[in-house]
Amino acid sequence: MIENFKKENIGPCKYDFELGEIFKHKKTKEIIDISKDKFPELIELKLPYVLKPGEYVLGRTIEKFNMPLELLSIYASNSIAFRLGMNILCGLNDPGYKGNAIFGIHNISQNKILLFRGMKLLETAFVELKGDATPVQTKFMGGRVL
């Protein structure tokens, strides 16, 4: 179900993810318009990285999912993230998804925060579904950031 997992990251009813890579949007003068398939370009940043106040990056977990069809995974921010002043933007992980989890990291504090490999910012609970789900079809399959 999860590749590259660590047994100690299994909690009472959740799993804590570890930060593996981070990416930043390349600044552009063009308008981002996803209806015209216009996505911002990404730059991979090296970890450890100092996240400045107001800065936003995308994170990719070390762990990889292989979601069975009877489960849904709900992401949430790890408490350390909001304690430090980071807003973690995340959503759901559909049944049938294969790949890393992608999430947003926004420094809403007034301080610089060090991001490092293995940092636990995201957690997930697995919910067993009632009825039959269809496997998700997404262009972000396989942990594609954009």
């Binding site: 179900m1 997992f5 047994k7 299994i10 909690g11 009813c13 609970a125 919910v127 067993e128 009632k130």
Partner: peptide, 15 residues
């Protein structure tokens, strides 16, 4: 609908 707890996570993730 139910949420998987530690023993079930251990079984499914670690085996």
């Amino acid at each position: 609908m139910s949420v998987l707890a530690y023993s079930e996570l251990l079984k499914r993730i670690v085996g």
